[in-house]
Nucleic acid binder design. Structure first.
Length: 462
RNA sequence: GGCGGGGUAGCCAAGUGGUAAGGCAGCGGUCUGCAAAACCGCUAUCCGCGGGUUCGAUUCCCGCCCCCGCCUCCA
């Protein structure tokens, strides 16, 4: 079955075929580094990670770019409020962002361009100059440069908005009277006092880039004029991605992106995250509550286009589901050789089909758990042969390259191993009271012990 | 008002024109010194509401209700 992706541009499911079969060019809108990214941001990054990993699972090489927006209204405002130079202000948030990605097992992108890097500022200036030359941009009275959307008839195609019918929202600042049309957006913002020392010289004056041109410049500078996939959350569709199309295509004359892929919003307890509601979580908040990055990752795995309701219950469910997977793997690994094979492996094709169907993770996980139950049953009945077990483990290792939810091996400290050995001796002497006491002792130290036919098994308490 | 996404068991969630995957939670059982894990069984006569098409609809069509997102720099 071919891999099919839902393309926001055409609003339909399409068979995925990259321009160049040897490498998929993928651009993902990254964070604005003015605070710690929250769990909703990471929903998007985990989805993009699963997309990249599934493409690789299917044999494509993927060159992924994730940008960092380190200059815009919010970063400038926050750094001024903190009384710290912009670069110094954003650095710790960049570092925290990479730590969080690692905790969530998001595979590093090939490139993490930052908007303020001279190479990209130069690219932005060059693109704006070209847009001016092509009459798709103009310098307004306030000194800023705006994109003229009337110069790009397709503007609105991605969001499927009819520009004549746009209802004015309160977010349109009526002081932007300098623009020819209310829909025109800033390419270059003329310096004003609010910007402090954040400014670059350009042929059109001292100032800084607008947000949209940052992505167009970084994407085309690194990946070239034509991308296979461009991702983001659905709120990026308009105006951000619409603006990227207008800028990029006017500059390059080529179709910018083949597949636009957007994930849905994350809500917490059914409501939009907000600090006033007290349901606003960063990853470090959740890690501080004792959840692991792996558990949060599992809770974020979902059918990406749907809204995702993130709750404390979904985190508990993630923990329990992962424990079930861990138990299954722990049973498969030590299979003794020699048992006859009287059991045929369940079909593993269903997983691939589900993932190929626009990353239907929910269905794919359902098939995984089907296989876990069937395997456990065969194990209970002594019908699973070592070759079967090895085949299942090999399959698991393959799908785990996409899911990335296997537990890390945990080192057992010496004193814990000592207590475990004491307990083994006590139980061998049928001293059940001592055995139970040691089990409680181990649990108090954070380790769960259970007795199986093969002896004691130790697990870190979640 | 425009555009888009949803409403499936206590919670999360797949799915199909032919009679409801999976996970979590719960209950009963097997196993176990006791637990844990695992396995077995039970837990939606029904898929927001009302019509229609059909031999048959949760799945297609029409109408309605409710929730959510976007509508000019929010992932």
């Amino acid at each position: 079955m071919p891999f099919r992706l839902y393309n926001t541009y055409t609003r339909s499911l399409e068979v995925f075929e990259p321009l160049d079969a040897s490498a998929v060019k993928m651009y993902t809108c990254g964070p604005t580094v003015y605070n710690h990214a929250h769990i909703g941001n990471f929903r998007a990054y985990v989805f993009e990670d699963v997309l990249q990993r599934h493409l690789e699972y299917r044999g494509w090489k993927v060159e992924r770019v994730m940008n960092l927006t380190d200059v815009d209204d919010k970063t400038i405002r926050a750094s001024r409020a903190a009384g710290v130079p912009l670069a110094e202000f954003t650095r710790p948030f960049k570092e925290a962002f990479f730590r969080d990605l690692a905790a969530l097992r998001v595979k590093p992108a090939a490139h993490y361009p930052a908007a303020t890097e001279p190479r990209f500022i130069a690219k932005m200036i060059a693109m704006i100059a070209l847009l001016l030359e092509r009459n798709a941009a103009y310098k307004a009275e306030d000194g800023s440069v705006y994109f003229r959307i009337s110069a790009f008839p397709k503007y609105g195609c991605l969001a499927h908005l009819n520009l004549e019918e746009l209802r004015p929202s309160g977010r349109i600042r009526n002081d932007e009277y300098e623009k020819e049309s209310v829909g025109d957006f800033a390419l270059w913002k003329a310096w004003d006092a609010e910007d402090g020392d954040v400014a670059w010289e350009s042929p059109f004056g001292r100032g800084r880039p607008g947000w949209h041109i940052e992505c167009s410049a970084m994407a085309t500078e690194i990946l070239g004029p034509r991308l296979d996939i461009h991702c983001g959350a659905e709120d990026n569709i308009f105006p951000h991605h619409e603006a990227e199309i207008a800028q990029s295509e006017t500059c390059t004359g080529e179709r910018f992106v083949r597949y636009w892929v957007h994930c849905g919003y994350l809500v917490v307890d059914g409501q939009k995250m907000s600090k006033s509601l007290g349901n606003f979580f960063t990853l470090r908040d959740l890690l501080g509550k004792g959840f692991s990055g792996r558990e949060v990752r599992y809770a974020l795995l979902s059918n990406y286009r749907l809204p995702l309701n993130f709750t404390s219950e979904s985190l508990s469910a993630a923990r329990a589901a992962l424990a079930r997977i861990d138990e299954w793997l722990a049973r498969l690994r030590p299979l003794a050789p020699g048992a006859p094979s009287t059991w045929s492996l369940p079909s593993q094709q269903n997983y691939d089909d589900a993932m190929d169907n626009n990353l239907n993770v929910s269905e794919a996980l359902g098939h995984l758990f089907d296989i876990i139950r069937e395997t456990n049953r065969a194990l209970d009945q002594g019908r699973l042969s070592p070759p079967d077990g090895r085949a299942l483990l090999a399959w698991w290792e393959r799908i785990n390259t996409v899911l990335a939810i296997e537990s890390e091996e945990e080192q057992i400290p010496v004193e814990i191993a000592g207590l475990l050995e004491q307990r083994r001796l006590a139980r061998a002497g049928k001293d059940w009271a001592a055995g139970d006491r040691l089990r409680a002792d181990l649990e108090a130290r954070g380790w769960l012990v259970k007795d199986t036919k093969e002896g004691q098994k130790l697990n870190r308490k979640p």
